[in-house]
Nucleic acid binder design. Structure first.
Length: 615
RNA sequence: GGAGGCGUAGCUCAGCUGGAUAGAGCAUCGCCCUUCUAAGGCGACGGUCACAGGUUCGAAUCCUGUCGCCUUCACCA
């Protein structure tokens, strides 16, 4: 049982007996390190129920706890804060009973209901860039966190595989491509297609310039440029199912999927279900008709269909064009409904999409509610801030993007440079080394992105490389590797509970202070301050997972792990572990180290980061 | 103009449902490898929590207003 819950009850009892008052909850917080104690009751918060001097009240409650709660050894009161010391036996007991499982803090899914987490959702006309990297890492990590918190998860994406932007790259390839393929050029498919998307824009701009030279106004030139007209025709042909167009479309899309596959693999993300816009927009149209029938939507004279959200404080929103074709909203309505049809156990959905689309999702969720879907109550837009460069926003068309593949390769290179300089990898084969460089490089990248609160904007300066020291992925990986080194060197059996009776003799001689009743709290042994801080930080892992799930925030896991590693490093630097003379303490410290390593590994799995045995 | 987000040390960020003297890392300057990996540890320096009011025993946190940056309000996605 959690220490807070335990004390919660005791404090309630105390207030009842001492002051004859019922309280709902007592406020606890971790004791600040400059005071003695493990956990602190904020007495101020009780003043609502009990009138009086907070110091006096605190003292009375403190006395009561020491007398009636076996785990409380002593207390002190500073202003309105009651600092409570908890018996070492409690910390140790928890260590041996609650922590041993290899999935400590993870909750098993108790029901079959699932959450669908959507992320990535790229357009199929250009390669993935740094913005997608943040999206993918966030979505993947949040999915893992929700799973760990005890709910089933289905990871998915919507692939934006149709529309004018796709036709642009198709047309440019047809026109200027000379039959190039990924095989013939050795280029990744998404890169090849992306090049033609850029090529289109270049040629299109040339045409506009020409038209302007011939005296046509810019706005008109943009609409009249032959390339654009041709792309629009191509879209119409595609929608009409023209065989050659559809064939080109599927060939080029396949190139892109193959390219994305490589990038996703390198990034370490995956999906359980894929949705394609080209397949769901029709269902969206169906429900627009239904919404029309049930008066959720209305039709204007020109035939376009709208949803009036002015009574909800929003604007009117178009859901179908006057020519009957679908808009973005149409397909999102269709996709959502399709997903619930396919997965009846899904009762909530998370959309990982940038914050520039906040309004879109507000409207989407509202429309789905108006259409009468119960699950529409449980939709969440995991909105994250943009990743900007020093010179501003990334623009694919203008080629000012940080390419995902390039970035990952660069991180690996940096890891290689640092590792080679340190030269600690004697005995590793080239293959093992390369694997390790990837682990470290990706660890640095992922941690760098995930440690910041999702809703905050990230400014990324390509010239200033991502750090490998301090609050970083490699710092935490390094601690893991050091612990593994200790465990490899530990040539004694550390698999048993040092508190077991077989060893009580040794332990008795080192029993804790006289406040503890040895009949009730046996097997007490003195804990070093640093050991205790590590134990306390370990015990908070389950709460961190729940909090991270509640807030959809991998940053909470990242920061938890950083704090854990910091207290462990202090411990590591302060006390000997393998060099410890007392066998019991040596065993305990080894076990404690192992548990820290296990927890780092679990926490990093939630972030999609792997840990190395050496580095 | 309407709506939303952000603003904490020179830089990058923590700060959970309001709680004690606002914390880390980087950078700068000192220490610590004949103990288990120095990608580490210890210390120093560094703050008007954008600003002004309000609520409260108590505000970086909640409310209101002002300023600054960003996003959005398309028959684009």
């Amino acid at each position: 049982m959690n220490i807070k819950d335990l004390l919660q009850n005791s404090v309630k009892k105390a207030v009842k007996q001492l002051f004859d008052k019922e309280i709902e909850t007592a406020d606890f917080q971790a004791t600040r390190k400059e005071f003695e104690g493990d956990i602190t009751l904020v007495v101020f918060s009780l003043l609502r129920y009990v009138k009086g001097n907070p110091v006096q009240i605190g003292t009375q409650i403190g006395d009561f706890l020491v007398e009636n709660e076996k785990l409380v050894t002593k207390y002190n009161v500073v202003k309105g804060f009651l600092n409570i010391s908890i018996a070492n036996s409690y910390h140790l007991d928890e260590f041996y009973t609650a922590f041993p499982s290899t999935d400590f803090g993870f909750q098993k899914a108790e029901s079959d209901t699932a959450t669908m987490v959507e992320y990535s959702s790229p357009n199929t006309n250009k390669p993935l860039h740094l913005g997608h990297v943040r999206n993918n890492l966030l979505g993947y990590s949040v999915a893992e966190i929700i799973k760990a918190a005890g709910k089933k998860v289905i990871k998915t994406q919507i692939i934006n595989d149709r529309g004018i932007h796709i036709c642009k790259s198709m047309l440019a390839w047809q026109r200027f491509g000379n039959g190039e393929t990924p095989e013939s050029t050795g280029l990744k498919g998404d890169k090849l297609v992306g090049n033609y998307y850029v090529k289109f824009d270049k040629e299109y701009k040339k045409e506009i310039a020409n038209l302007k030279d011939n005296g046509i106004a810019e706005a008109d030139a943009k609409k009249q440029a032959p390339l654009l007209l041709e792309a629009q025709q191509m879209l119409q042909k595609w929608e009409a199912g023209d065989e050659a167009t559809v064939k080109l479309w599927s060939t080029m899309n396949q190139w892109v999927y193959d390219g994305f596959g490589i990038t996703y693999k390198a990034m370490g993300v995956d999906f359980d279900a894929l949705y394609y816009e080209s397949k769901t927009y029709l269902l969206g149209k169906e429900f627009v008709s239904e919404g029309l029938a049930s008066d959720v939507f209305y039709k204007k004279e020109d035939g376009s269909v709208w949803c009036d959200l002015t009574t909800d404080g929003l604007d009117e929103k178009i859901v179908l064009r006057s020519d009957g074709t679908a808009v973005y909203m149409t397909q999102d309505i269709g996709t959502a409904i399709q997903r619930i049809k396919d997965y009846p156990n899904v009762n909530s959905m998370v959309y990982t999409v940038g914050n520039e689309q906040d309004y879109h999702f507000k409207v989407l969720f509202l429309i789905l509610k108006k259409l009468g879907f119960e699950w529409a109550e449980n939709l969440f837009h995991l909105s994250y801030g943009m990743v900007d460069l020093p010179e501003g926003k990334m623009k694919s068309r203008e080629g000012t993007v940080v390419d995902a593949d390039d970035l990952m390769a660069e991180m690996t290179n940096t890891a290689r440079d640092i590792s080679e300089e340190l030269g600690k990898l004697d005995g590793y084969s080239t293959k093992e080394k390369e694997r390790l460089y990837k682990t470290i490089g990706m660890g640095a990248l992922k941690y760098y992105i995930l440690k910041v609160d999702p809703k905050k904007r990230i400014l990324f300066d390509p010239k200033e490389s991502i750090d490998f020291n301090g609050n970083t992925g490699p710092f935490i990986q390094y601690t893991y590797a050091r612990i593994q080194s200790i465990l490899r060197k530990a040539d004694f059996d550390y698999s048993f509970n040092v508190l077991d009776s077989a060893r009580t003799d040794t332990l008795k001689t080192r029993s804790d202070n006289g406040n503890v009743n040895s009949n009730e709290v046996k097997n007490v042994f003195e804990l070093h301050d640093k050991e205790k801080s590590v134990l306390k930080q370990l015990a908070e892992f389950p709460d961190a997972i729940q909090l991270a799930a509640k807030n959809y925030s991998p940053a909470i896991i990242a920061n938890y792990t950083y704090d854990l590693v910091k207290v462990y490093n202090t411990f590591y630097q302060t006390v000997p572990i393998l060099g410890c003379e007392d066998l019991d303490i040596k065993i305990f410290r080894t076990q404690l180290s192992q548990k820290v390593a296990d927890t780092i590994k679990l926490a990093f799995e939630l972030l999609g980061i792997s840990v190395p045995e050496r580095m």
